[in-house]
């Protein structure tokens, strides 16, 4: 788990996003380096999820640029599908394909994007299922799984694409409390193995323990960002202090 400052994966420059009259992101600039675990916190409606979803263009930014591995992916001429293959995403609501088995969920994209043969993809699926601790669920349907299991499968599905970076949009917020641990544990394991991650979460323990950088977003801008130690021990911004006093 070490940050490589020489390799910048994502460069976000003056990112803005408006929905009609609602100016959600008001100019966000930051760089995300290889091996970083950036944890984004902030009150609801602050724009943190919109920011995360902009990073793979699930939200189309209305201003600014995003460079992924040196390519401006906000450029209309860029084939976004090709870059999304390298940006994994895990959703709050899991979003497993409900008409597909677990194995099909994991192998669908690699096979149809012609990145692997069926046999290769299935072999990889079994390895990943082993890794997320659900080797016996290959032929189950999502409806037969618990929330925690679904999220672990969703992470495995993302990993099957061998992403360079993974985005987590409140991955534990829809889980029953007793299942939060298993998902966080898996995410910690990913971080230990050097995965670059951007995580929107309310799990302050995770931010403190696993994050290499914690970012506080409110009113559509980064109000403060720092190492977890400084962020929690010595917050500068008044809004952040208010926020922390409420959540800690």
């Amino acid at each position: 788990m070490s940050v490589d400052r020489s390799k910048v994966l994502l460069e976000v420059q003056g990112l803005e996003k408006s929905f009609k009259n609602n100016h959600v992101l008001r100019g966000i600039t930051t760089d995300i380096y290889q091996g970083e675990v950036v944890v984004i916190v902030g009150p609801s409606g602050s724009g943190k999820s919109t920011f995360l979803r902009s990073l793979n263009l699930l939200e189309q930014p209305t201003g600014g640029r995003i460079l992924f591995e040196g390519t401006d992916i906000t450029d209309k001429k860029v084939d976004i599908n090709r870059h999304r293959q390298k940006i994994g995403m895990v959703f709050q609501q899991f979003n497993l394909f409900s008409n597909k088995t677990v194995k099909q969920n994991i192998t669908l994209a690699p096979i149809n994007l012609k990145l692997m043969t069926k046999a290769e993809a299935e072999k990889r699926a079994y390895e990943l299922l082993e890794r997320v601790g659900l080797p016996d669920k290959a032929d189950s349907y999502p409806a037969q799984l618990s929330g925690g299991q679904k999220q672990r499968i969703a992470i495995a599905r993302s990993l099957a694409m061998n992403p360079d970076i993974m985005l987590f949009d409140e991955p534990t917020s829809a889980l029953d409390p007793e299942m939060v641990g298993e998902v966080l544990e898996l995410m910690k394991e990913l971080a230990r193995n050097g995965m670059t991650m951007v995580v929107v979460t309310h799990e302050m323990g995770f931010a403190r323990e696993v994050g290499t950088r914690v970012m506080f977003i409110d009113e559509g801008v980064i109000q403060e960002e720092n190492t977890p130690q400084e962020f929690f021990r010595n917050p500068q911004n008044q809004r952040l202090r208010d926020f922390l006093s409420k959540v800690l």
Binding site: N56, F91, K100, A109
Partner: peptide, 27 residues
């Protein structure tokens, strides 16, 4: 079909058409 199904497909790098054909339409 929940918008999340489309988003999951697109986030994996599938095109609109592939997402439609493989995920949305069957459901």
């Amino acid at each position: 079909i929940d918008e999340g199904q489309t988003e999951a497909g697109r986030s994996l790098g599938l095109s609109f058409t592939q997402t439609m054909r493989l995920i949305i339409l069957p459901q």
